[in-house]
Amino acid sequence: MSYHSITLEDTGESFRSSETRTVLDGMAALGKKGIPVGCCGGGCGVCKIEIISGTYRKRVMSREHISVEDEANNRVLACRVWPTSDLRLKVLGKMSKSVCNDKAVASEVK
């Protein structure tokens, strides 16, 4: 089994992950943090990343979160990509849609 180093440019956090686990699963399985963990099925979009360098394998992702242009520019969902080399990446997604956390939304509530 091949292992690769995954580095999150935002935090400098780095972990080793096998080619058989997605980037997100590889992170979570080691108890590491940095990329938000959501549905893990390419649907919810919270784990969106931009891969700065390295090669990877990918599967179908929701077009609501990853446009054709995103995909062409290595902006993908961490739960749907498997590393085939060392990777450096930036985290784009966040857990940010909550009514409780978002005062702007709460203030719109009548």
Partner: peptide, 9 residues
């Protein structure tokens, strides 16, 4: 959990 109010499809 973080996902309850955030993770939806």
């Amino acid at each position: 959990n973080d996902a309850f109010l955030t993770v939806v499809t």
